[in-house]
Write a protein that binds this DNA or RNA. Structure first.
Length: 192
DNA sequence: CCCTGATTCGC
DNA sequence: GCGAATCAGG
């Protein structure tokens, strides 16, 4: 396929409408989103905003340039930082020592199984609801993109993993992420 | 993982 | 000019 006037016109129109490159490519057919983006740039309408503002890329990111491979600036030899807890987990382990690193290897916070937790009723409801839809996969079926939330007693036949599509980085699906990563407000005060 | 646009560079 | 490959960010 080539960029006929008509196709270019469609491209311009859709692009100005805010359509994504992939959508445009799909509409046009015979081209990939890369082609669309490339064309967009060549047409000079990359920036969907007013062309007046000019202060684009003062920093051209160095890339694999097989051409002139001169000197490699090696500024930061990686000074090991203390690195405090990057993301507060559900139950923050008390740092008994200031500069003490977490004992937890690389794992995500383990799923709090049963009732011991008081999570937002919402989340819980959501969980029990999705557990119906759960794929109930076995240990072997676990992949990088399956929710690894265990359900039931591992010592029983009645044990399975959620298996639903995980949320991006997380090890669990959305619903389970909701209960796994508590903001930190749980049972603050039990008016006992 | 999915998606997005941006850039490079051989064709 | 074209666009796949790659990068970078969400």
């Amino acid at each position: 396929m080539s960029w006929t006037d008509e196709r270019v016109e469609t491209l311009k129109k859709m692009w100005s409408e805010g359509q994504s490159a992939s959508q445009i490519a799909k509409e046009l057919g015979g081209v990939t989103r890369n082609a669309v983006i490339g064309k967009v740039h060549r047409l000079g309408l990359s920036n969907r905003t007013a062309p007046g503002a000019a202060a684009p890329k003062p920093e051209p990111k160095a890339k694999p340039a097989p051409k002139v491979e001169a000197a490699k600036p090696k500024p930061a030899p990686k000074p090991i930082e203390p690195e405090s807890t990057p993301e507060p987990a559900a139950e923050a382990p008390k740092p008994s020592l200031p500069a003490r690193k977490q004992i937890i290897p690389a794992g995500q916070p383990l799923p709090p199984q049963p009732s011991a937790n008081e999570i937002s009723p919402e989340a819980l409801a959501k969980v029990s609801e999705i557990e119906k839809k759960a794929k109930k996969i076995g240990l072997m079926e676990l992949t990088e993109r399956t929710c690894k939330w265990p359900v039931g007693d591992p010592a029983t036949e009645d044990f399975w993993f959620c298996g639903l599509p995980v949320q991006q980085g997380k090890p669990y699906c959305e619903a389970h992420v909701g209960v796994a990563f508590q903001p930190m407000s749980a049972r603050r005060d039990r008016r006992r």
